[in-house]
Design a protein around this nucleic acid. Structure first.
Length: 863
RNA sequence: GGGCGGUUAGCUCAGUGGGAGAGCGCUUCCUUGACACGGAAGAGGUCACAUGUUCAAUCCAUGUACCGCCCACCA
C-alpha cells in the first residue's frame, strides 16, 4: 500500500485514547491549569464548518498544553437551545396534527427530553470523528439538575439584589416563534418596502386641511397617540398644540407635539407616534407622558383590547396594513406611495419580522453588571485576540440596555417565580421556599407558577462556573476558575461572551477567562455565507470521511490567519492536506525500509558521528520547535501549522530524506531520521492527532501514546549553525546545477559533470553530486570559505549554453551592484540610515562584486 | 450615520521600512531504489489609486475608489 488510509486508523485510535482516559483530567493545583470551556453546541446541532474553525483550535490548544505538562482540560457540554429545540418539536407534533397546547406542558417537555436524549448525542459523535478530545467524562447539559440549580440560584440572587425585575416594556416579539427575543437576537436586514404619506385631517368636515406624515407601518396608525414634529421646524410651528384625527377611522383626535428626535429632512418632517409598537415612539411617549395602547396581540393580529380598532379587529398585521391603506386612499387621505428600501428587524432564529410591542416581562438590569465587565477589559484582565474585537465588546457594554430574559416557550428553565392571587410575584429557588415566603409575607399558600422560561443565553452565561459545580465549592471550581482561554466566533461576543464576563465577575468575583480568541467565520470559495438554501454548504463530516479528520483539521487551520475575519473555504485545501498526510506516511515507509532498522530507543549518535545533512536537519528541527511553540502561544494556528508543514515537506522530505540516499553515508541516518520524525510528529500532534500518533508509534518512542508524550524541547536538539549555513550554500549549488541539467535537457538517468573547487570538503562534494545526480570533477581552489567555494560550483554543459547562462547571471549581478553602489553613494543614506543597515548593504555589495568577478572569470575561461 | 476589516501572480492567500513569496492552476521533463495524493525545472505581479512622512515605502500617515462585516430610534 503506497497511500495513507486514514479510515484504517482514526476510529481505532480514538477509541483507544478514550478508553485509556487520556482526555480526562483531575484538578491538580501543583501544575499550571489550562482550561477551556467548550461553547456548548445546540442539542439540535450538527457539526458544520464553523466548528472546524472554532473547535479545532480548542482541541489544538488542549493537546498542546497537555504535552507541555499543564493541568489541561477541555470541558464539553451541550446547550438545550430553547427556541430552536421547541421549534423542532412543534414541527414534529404538527405532523401528528397536534399543537403544543393539545399535549400540555408536562407531556410536551417530556417529549423534548426524549428528543434531546435521542438526537442530542449526534454532534458529540461527530466531534469524536473529527478527533476532538474534550474531557467527555465531564460533559454537561444546560438542563442538567446541577446546572438548573445554578440557574435558579442566580436568578433568585439577582432578583433579591434588585437586578432582576418585572416590568411593562417595549420588547421584541417574534410572531413565528411565538416568543419574545432579546435585542441581541434581532438582525436588521435591508428590504424593499413602501413609504406612505398620509394626511391626518384637522376635522372630519374638511379632509383637505391636515398634517402629512410618512410611515412604513400604516397598520400601527390604530395605536397612534400623537404626531411629532421638530420644535424648530417653522413649517409646523402653527400645528404644535393642535389636534388631528387618526385615519381611516377618524374617531380619535390626537395632539401634534414637538420633539427634537424628529428629523425635519426625512419624509414630510412629521412623524406619527405609536409608543406601543416602535422603539423611538416609545421614547417619545415616555418623554411626553402619552398613553401607550397596543393594537397588535401576541399573534401579530389587530386587537381592540385597549383602543377601538373598528373593522380591523382580528386581522393579521399585513392584511390590516393593506386594508388600512386602501381605506385611507378611499378617503383621499393617502397623499403618496413610494418604494422605499430600509432595514427592518427580523428574528435571527425564525427569520420573521419582529413586532415591537409593550408587554409585561422579566428583565435583567444591566448597567451595574456591565460596569465591572468594562473595567476588567480596560484593565487588561480580559484580552481579545485579535485586539480589535475588544472595542466591539466595549462599545456594546457602553450602550447596553436591559436584557429581556423571559420567553414564552416551554422548553427551558422555567422561571423560579410564583404569583400570589393578587398577582404579586414570589421569587424562590424551590416551590417549598416560595410557599414559605408567600405564607410569611402574604398569608397565602395559593401560588401560580409563571409559565415562562428563561432565555437560553441566561444559562449559557453561567457556563464557566456552573459546569464546575457552582454553587457547590468544588475542587474543580477552585483549580479551574477562571479558565485560560475562550475560543469563539465574533457573532456571539454580545450574546455570550459579554454576559459570561458580567455574570462571572458578579458571582465568582473574577473574569471567567483571560483570553478571548475570535476565530474567522467560514464562507464558501466565493465569499458567500454557507447556507442550506444556497446549496453551498460543505459538510465537515463528508470531508473527514473522504480525506480523513486530520486532513480536514489541517485544511482549516492552514487557512486561519491571526487578524483575518473570514476564511473562504476551498475543498482543494483538504485535498492538499490529504496529500501532506500521504507524504508523511510515505516518509515513514521509507524510513522503515532501512535495512539496518530503527534503533530500539530514541538516541542520537555523538556529534562527530553526524553528517552535514544530519546537522542541518537537526538545526532546522530546533528552529521549527521554537517557531511552532511561539505561534501556538500567540494563537496563530495558520502560521503554526504552516511551519510544521514546511519543515516536514520542504526540509525533511525534500532535502533530508534525499540526502540519506547518498550511498556509503548511511551510518547515522536511522537514528537521526527517527529522532527528527519523532519530534516532528509531536509538533504535528495537536493539529493532526491521528497520523502523528500512528507514525510516532512506529518510531522509537517513550510511553504509550503521543497524547501523553512531552512537547519537544529545543534545547534537547543539537544545533550547528555553521553546518546549517554550509548546507544552505550547498542547496543553492544543487539548484544551480539542476537548473542547468534541465536546460541541457538531460534525462534523470544521465549524470552531469559537476565542477567542484578543491576547497569544498569531500563529504560536502559527495553529497552535492549525489543530490544533483552528477559526477564529481575536481577543479582548482575557488578561494574563500566553504560557502564561497560552493558558490563557484557549476555543471559542465555545452559552451554556448554556459555562456548564455553566465551572461544572464552577469547582467543580474551587474544590476545589483549598480543598484547598491548608487545607494551607498547616496550621502543621505550613509548618514541617516541605521549603521547596521549600511554595513549590511556594504556586505551585500561586496558579495555581489565577488560573484560578478567569479562569473566573469568563468566566462573568460570559456574562451 | 458611526466603527472595523480587505484590495499583492489566472485563483486562494502569506509577507517585510532596505534584493516581491507560497499553494493550486499553467508550460516542459521524469513512473529514479518512500510518495504521480510524487519529483525536477520554468513562465507569470507598476503589491487598488493619490498625496505625504523618510536617505529609502508594497509595508507608516492621510485621503479616494471598490468589496465585505458590525453597530445605530431616520418614521
Amino acid at each position: 500500500m503506497t497511500q495513507y488510509d486514514p479510515k484504517a486508523i482514526e476510529e481505532r485510535l480514538y477509541e483507544r485514547w478514550e478508553r485509556a482516559g487520556y482526555f480526562h483530567e483531575e484538578p491538580d493545583p501543583a501544575r499550571p491549569p489550562f482550561v477551556i470551556c467548550m461553547p456548548p453546541p445546540n442539542v439540535t446541532g450538527r457539526a458544520h464548518l464553523g466548528h472546524g474553525s472554532t473547535f479545532t483550535p480548542m482541541d489544538v490548544m488542549t493537546r498542546y498544553h497537555r504535552m507541555l505538562g499543564n493541568n489541561a482540560d477541555w470541558l464539553p457540554g451541550v446547550d438545550h437551545a430553547a427556541i430552536a429545540t421547541e421549534a423542532v418539536l412543534v414541527r414534529e407534533i404538527a405532523k401528528e396534527g397536534l399543537t403544543r397546547e393539545d399535549l400540555g406542558r408536562e407531556r410536551f417537555v417530556a417529549r423534548a427530553w426524549e428528543w434531546s436524549r435521542t438526537y442530542g448525542g449526534q454532534i458529540e459523535k461527530q466531534f469524536r470523528k473529527l478527533g476532538f478530545g474534550p474531557d467527555w467524562e465531564r460533559a454537561r447539559f444546560t438542563m442538567d439538575e446541577g446546572l438548573s440549580a445554578a440557574v435558579r440560584r442566580v436568578f433568585v440572587r439577582l432578583y433579591r439584589e434588585g437586578l432582576v425585575y418585572r416590568g411593562r416594556r417595549l420588547i421584541n416579539w417574534d410572531p413565528k416563534g411565538k416568543t419574545t427575543v432579546s435585542d441581541a437576537e434581532v438582525d436588521r436586514v435591508e428590504r424593499d418596502a413602501t413609504l406612505w404619506r398620509i394626511r391626518y385631517p384637522r376635522a372630519a368636515g374638511d379632509l383637505a386641511d391636515g398634517i402629512e406624515v410618512a410611515t412604513t407601518r400604516p397598520e400601527t396608525m390604530l395605536g397612534d397617540v400623537a404626531i411629532a414634529v421638530h420644535p424648530q421646524d417653522a413649517r409646523f410651528a402653527r400645528w404644535i398644540g393642535a389636534t388631528v384625527l387618526v385615519p381611516p377611522l377618524l374617531q380619535r383626535a390626537i395632539p401634534v407635539i414637538a420633539d427634537a428626535c424628529v428629523d425635519p429632512e426625512f419624509g414630510t418632517g412629521a412623524v406619527k407616534v405609536t409608543p406601543a409598537h416602535d422603539a423611538t415612539d416609545y421614547e417619545i411617549g415616555l418623554r411626553h407622558g402619552l398613553a401607550m395602547p397596543t393594537v397588535l396581540d401576541l399573534r401579530a393580529r389587530v386587537s381592540g383590547a385597549e383602543v377601538d380598532v373598528g373593522p380591523y379587529e382580528g386581522l393579521d398585521r399585513f392584511e390590516a396594513r393593506r386594508r388600512i391603506v386602501a381605506d385611507t386612499a378611499q378617503l383621499g387621505l393617502l397623499v403618496a406611495e413610494e418604494p422605499y428600501r430600509h432595514a427592518i428587524a427580523v428574528s435571527d432564529r425564525s427569520g420573521d419580522v419582529i413586532e415591537p410591542l409593550l408587554s409585561l416581562q422579566w428583565f435583567v438590569k444591566m448597567e451595574s453588571l456591565a460596569a465591572p465587565a468594562l473595567q476588567a477589559y480596560r484593565e487588561g484582565r480580559v484580552r481579545f485576540v485579535p485586539e480589535r474585537y475588544g472595542r466591539t465588546y466595549e462599545q456594546w457594554l457602553e450602550n447596553i440596555r436591559d436584557w429581556n430574559v423571559s420567553r414564552q416557550i416551554w422548553w427551558g428553565h422555567q422561571l423560579p417565580v410564583w404569583y400570589v392571587p393578587d398577582g404579586t410575584p414570589v421569587v424562590a429557588e424551590t416551590e417549598e421556599e416560595a410557599i414559605e415566603i408567600a405564607m410569611r409575607e402574604h398569608g397565602t399558600r395559593e401560588l401560580t407558577r409563571d409559565p415562562d422560561t428563561l432565555d437560553t443565553w441566561f444559562s449559557s452565561g453561567l457556563w464557566p462556573f456552573s459546569i464546575l459545580g457552582w454553587p457547590q465549592q468544588t475542587a474543580e471550581l477552585s483549580c479551574w476558575y477562571p479558565s485560560q482561554v475562550l475560543v469563539t466566533s465574533f457573532d456571539i461576543i454580545f450574546l455570550w461572551v459579554a454576559r459570561m464576563v458580567m455574570l462571572g465577575i458578579h458571582f465568582m468575583g473574577d473574569v471567567p477567562f483571560r483570553d478571548v480568541v475570535i476565530t474567522p467565520l467560514v464562507f464558501d470559495a466565493q465569499g458567500r455565507k454557507m447556507s442550506k438554501s444556497l446549496g453551498n454548504a460543505i459538510d465537515p463530516m463528508d470531508l473527514a470521511e473522504r480525506y480523513g479528520a486530520d486532513a480536514f483539521r489541517v485544511s482549516i487551520l492552514r487557512q486561519m490567519r491571526l487578524e483575518s475575519q473570514e476564511i473562504r473555504y476551498h475543498e482543494a485545501r483538504c485535498e492538499e492536506a490529504r496529500n501532506f498526510n500521504n507524504k508523511i506516511w510515505n516518509a515513514l515507509r521509507y524510513g522503515k525500509s532501512f535495512p539496518e532498522g530503527f534503533p530500539s530507543a530514541m538516541t542520537l549518535p555523538p556529534q562527530d558521528g553526524l553528517t552535514l545533512a544530519d546537522r542541518w536537519i537537526l538545526t532546522r528541527l530546533r528552529d521549527a520547535i521554537v517557531r511552532v511553540g511561539e505561534r501556538l502561544d500567540r494563537y496563530d494556528f495558520g502560521s503554526a501549522t504552516d511551519s510544521i508543514w514546511r519543515f516536514l515537506w520542504y526540509e525533511f522530505c525534500d532535502w533530508y530524506v534525499e540526502a540519506t540516499k547518498e550511498p556509503g553515508n548511511t551510518a547515522s541516518r536511522a537514528p537521526v531520521f527517527s529522532f527528527v520524525l519523532n519530534n516532528a510528529m509531536r509538533l504535528l500532534h495537536p493539529v493532526a492527532p491521528f497520523i502523528s500518533e500512528e507514525v510516532w508509534l512506529s518510531l522509537p518512542h517513550d510511553g504509550q501514546s503521543i497524547m501523553t508524550a512531552t512537547w519537544p524541547d529545543p534545547l534537547e536538539v543539537p544545533a550547528d549553525a555553521a553546518a546549517a549555513a554550509t548546507f544552505e550554500s550547498l542547496q543553492q549549488a544543487v539548484e544551480r546545477v539542476r537548473n542547468l541539467r534541465a536546460e541541457i535537457g538531460l534525462s534523470p538517468r544521465d549524470r552531469i559533470d559537476v565542477d567542484v573547487p578543491s576547497d569544498v570538503p569531500d563529504d560536502v562534494a559527495q553529497l552535492l553530486v549525489h543530490l544533483c545526480a552528477g559526477t564529481l570533477r575536481r577543479v582548482g581552489a575557488a578561494g574563500g570559505d566553504v560557502a564561497g567555494a560552493l558558490a563557484a560550483v557549476s555543471g559542465r554543459a555545452p559552451r554556448d549554453l554556459l555562456e548564455a547562462r553566465h551572461r544572464k547571471e552577469l547582467e543580474r549581478l551587474a544590476n545589483e551592484v549598480e543598484r547598491l553602489e548608487k545607494k551607498l553613494a547616496n550621502a543621505q543614506f550613509v548618514a541617516k540610515a541605521a549603521p547596521g543597515v549600511v554595513a549590511k548593504e556594504r556586505e551585500k555589495l561586496a558579495g555581489y562584486r565577488q560573484e560578478h568577478q567569479r562569473v566573469a572569470k568563468a566566462v573568460a575561461d570559456l574562451e
